[in-house]
Design a protein around this nucleic acid. Structure first.
Lengths: 160, 160
DNA sequence: ATTACTGCAAAGCATTTGCAAATGC
DNA sequence: GCATTTGCAAATGCTTTGCAGTAAT
């Protein structure tokens, strides 16, 4: 556990400082180990990453002093998902996208067909209606996801 | 174009009879060809398939007189999606699920974590709110999808 | 000391693609 | 006859896994 985090931007350092103890608690509850690799991955997730894919993260951690292998990145992201620290979006046909959920309230996504941008939006009314629908079907919700596909304002403008 | 559809159940035959001309029209508009393989795939999609995956469909068409190769099945499903005749759901971690949309009004899904069952539900109010959200973000919707993950009534009962 | 975790490279799996032969136009 | 589509099998790309070595408890 001797991983240097002094050069992190203040904002990132703060997120990590809050999120890491939660992950540690989660790991201990699971009788899993608190390892350096797991801290590096968590730190990287909270560094300048809004939406990212596992492979990019793995690439970033593939060299330099804070090296973590691809396999471990995937394994750790799965743990972080289980811990509720990241969210996975698998709707596009390419590969899964992740985002960190810590200090990031629940929201849904619009994905632009043209530029691939993720636009976040939240709607409490929709949430209520979804809860209602679950009740009607006696379905116990664990999680939900809304994705809207289409064209974003910027791309529409560009098209003329 | 000498493909025998006489043994199809009445209901299926009817769906095919209605959907096929739409697909033909779509193909012509696209300067693509109206082929036997495409008709076989479309027919199979409308046969006893609520939710299915490309690979199962390919397996069903891998032998017998109405043979279509895996590659063609994937290619044709992509065309059918473009034509708006099938819908793809890519939220589970395994593989994409398809469903035909013809004679099947728009709806969303609940997926049971335990048994994998797809439960369909529709909610007009949610649709309206989604439209609203798009307007607010100047996003031009092409399509949307809601998926709720959790436990279905049957599995909850089984658990006690 | 014991047991879990990591790295690596190899395997897996759904999906896509290149190319020669077949088919629709 | 010409261009597109098909079948096949090989390739692709993301993700998972087996195993020997390494680190955490």
């Amino acid at each position: 556990m001797s991983f240097d985090e002094q050069e992190l931007p203040e904002e990132v350092r703060q997120s990590v400082e809050e999120a890491w103890p939660l992950f540690v608690e989660f790991l201990k509850k699971k009788d899993a180990r608190v390892t350096q690799a797991r801290k590096i991955v968590l730190t990287q997730v909270f560094s300048r990453h809004d939406h990212f894919c596992a492979d990019d993260l793995a690439a970033e951690l593939s060299s330099g002093m804070n090296h973590v292998s691809r396999g471990t990145v995937y394994r750790t992201l799965a743990l972080m998902e289980e811990a509720g620290l990241v969210r996975v979006i698998r709707d596009t046909d390419v590969h899964a996208h992740y985002e960190h959920t810590f200090n990031h309230p629940h929201h849904e996504h619009m994905i632009c067909d043209k530029c691939g941008q993720f636009i976040e939006f939240a709607d409490d009314e929709i949430m209520v209606l979804i809860e209602q629908a679950c009740k009607e079907h006696e379905f116990e919700e664990r999680n939900h996801r809304i994705v809207i596909f289409g064209t974003c304002a910027a791309c529409k403008a560009k098209e003329g």
